[in-house]
């Protein structure tokens, strides 16, 4: 009896010590990161980086809005040294709030000026346009026409069939909101949103969730980024994409270094930052998320370069500055029309 207990006890303590060691001590060759990429994409990207650099990446996936709030809340004691991915507007907000740090590097030399910050606080890794994604089977089942314009989405026949994320959390959704404002002008835009809201049963927290739901038929039509949809299509889901006739907005998925991040990680974080704009990272973006990177690498089948898309005049600086106001207004419009 005694022996059994001793063995039990020793095993337990060993396991515990191992846990301790792993969680607390082994923290030198590492980078901690927030990422707003899809979790599986982030996993692939960081695995590739780990393989090449020998460093270990600890990451948490947060939506763009969440990431900014979290970084803001941790301002005095930042927990991560890099924010990887996420809609550029969020990165501009982070810069404006003084959360990121300038990192002049030759790694971003090849980028067009509109895809990087002039003060070197952030730079884009790929661009992705917003599209309508619809489930072909569901669309047929409910005998719905393909929506071809933003206008179409407010038609009453789509009631309960459309989904997008909540702009409060999701950078994607905020990108949708500002695109609508840019197309219709602010006053008409919120009238439009009121109408659109009648067709939307719920808003998700994550910007990519609606697309995935459309892919599996949980919802019929989603608004999201093209590359996500392209990936689902290539995976064999009954999904198709449609660019809106009025033109569409786009994201610049970006990377920022965080101000006052964990000290022993600064150099490692810079390594990851510089690596993010290179070819091997771009290959992972292509293979995992079907995105179109700013580096010249072979594209995935069906991927659509941003240059081939009719885009709206997009002012991300303006979008970042007006976020609180617009999101607040959106909340009010959406919730008060719900009570009707």
């Amino acid at each position: 009896m005694r022996l059994k207990h001793t063995i039990f006890f020793i095993t337990l303590s060993l396991v515990f010590l191992l846990l301790m060691f792993d969680s607390v001590l082994a923290r030198s060759k590492r980078v901690t990161a927030y990422t707003s990429l899809h979790e599986p994409v982030a996993r692939a990207v960081f695995n590739q980086f780990e393989k090449e650099s020998g460093l270990k990446v600890f990451f948490v996936r947060l939506s763009t809005g969440e990431a900014v709030s979290k970084l803001d809340a941790e301002r005095l004691n930042p927990q991560v040294s890099i924010w990887f991915g996420g809609v550029g507007i969020g990165h501009i907000r982070a810069k404006n709030k003084g959360l990121s740090v300038a990192n002049p590097t030759t790694a971003t030399k090849h980028l067009e000026p509109k895809y990087k910050d002039k003060d070197h606080h952030w730079a884009g890794i790929y661009a992705a346009p917003l599209v309508f994604e619809y489930n072909t089977i569901m669309l047929k089942r409910y005998a719905l026409p393909i929506p071809v314009s933003w206008r179409d989405l407010t038609k009453s026949e789509y009631k309960g069939h459309i989904q997008m994320a909540n702009p409060g959390f999701s950078g994607t959704a905020y990108n949708i909101l500002t695109t609508i404002v840019e197309i219709f002008g602010e006053t008409s835009a919120f009238k439009y949103i009121q109408a659109l809201n009648r067709n939307i049963p719920m808003y998700s927290r994550s910007g990519s969730a609606p697309g995935k739901r459309a892919a599996i038929g949980e919802v019929t039509i989603a608004i999201g980024y093209a590359h996500d949809a392209v990936k689902f299509i290539s995976d064999g889901f009954p999904l198709a994409i449609q660019f809106p006739a009025e033109g569409t907005g786009y994201e610049i998925a970006a990377v920022s270094l965080i101000k006052n991040g964990p000290k022993d990680e600064t150099e490692n974080a810079k390594k990851l930052y510089n690596w993010a704009f290179g070819k091997s990272a771009a290959k992972v973006y292509v293979s995992q998320s079907f995105a179109v990177p700013f580096v010249n690498v072979p594209l995935a089948k069906g991927a659509i370069p941003i240059s081939e898309v009719k885009t709206v005049e997009q002012d991300d600086e303006w979008a970042a500055k007006n976020r609180s106001r617009l999101v607040e207004k959106w909340h009010n419009v959406v919730t008060s029309s719900q009570s009707e």
Partner: peptide, 16 residues
């Protein structure tokens, strides 16, 4: 589309 207080608290912090 059924907002409740506890989630709104979180949303108010994280989203806004």
């Amino acid at each position: 589309d059924f907002p409740v207080l506890s989630v709104q608290t979180y949303l108010e912090f994280v989203g806004m």
